[in-house]
Design a protein around this nucleic acid. Structure first.
Length: 153
DNA sequence: GCCAACGTTGGC
DNA sequence: GCCAACGTTGGC
């Protein structure tokens, strides 16, 4: 079992939106960064991920999702009308991948970016490394537990 | 809206 | 293969 963190701008797609989707499941498409893509390809069905809200009033971890389907080609890449259209990706040779995520639950208390930065046990999190802008990244079991524990307090 | 950090592109 | 220019991310 692996742990992850996935970022989304809540005005585009929030944990609440995911909760309202049929089967509470949605494709995680639009990732156009190789490192993030590689992390998605490493995801296994049943892995858990934090749902992180970015570029919003209070950035932070708001909920937990489960990987419901392992990586498969992201067809938005060859849709000309899609804002993430990439002519270098084709159905024959897909460059970008997506996974399906299923809503698990919201955190009782969301853990804000500020809290994460102030927590000694979390100072090595990839999320808070200077210049780290990855939208998909791994989280260690220890970091996972620390955030969960904080969210129950 | 600003801007620092980073990734990608493309000319050479 | 270098590197400048440009675009994007995301916190503030």
């Amino acid at each position: 079992m692996n742990y992850w963190l996935m970022k989304s701008e809540p005005q585009a797609f929030s944990i609440t939106d995911l909760k309202k989707r049929p089967q509470q499941t949605e494709h995680w498409d639009g990732v156009r960064n190789y490192q993030a893509r590689n992390f998605m390809r490493a995801m296994k069905k049943g892995d858990l991920a934090f749902f992180y809200h970015s570029s919003c009033e209070v950035p932070g971890v708001y909920g937990i999702v489960e990987i419901a389907h392992e990586a498969y080609p992201d067809d938005t890449a060859w849709d000309r009308k899609n804002s993430h259209y990439d002519p270098k990706s084709t159905p024959e040779e897909p460059r970008w991948y997506m996974v399906d995520v299923r809503f698990k639950r919201e955190l009782k208390h969301p853990i804000t970016l500020t809290q994460i930065k102030n927590q000694a046990a979390l100072k090595n999190m990839r999320l808070v490394q200077p210049g780290s802008r990855l939208s998909v990244m791994p989280v260690t079991a220890k970091e996972w537990d620390t955030i969960l524990k904080l969210s129950e307090e």
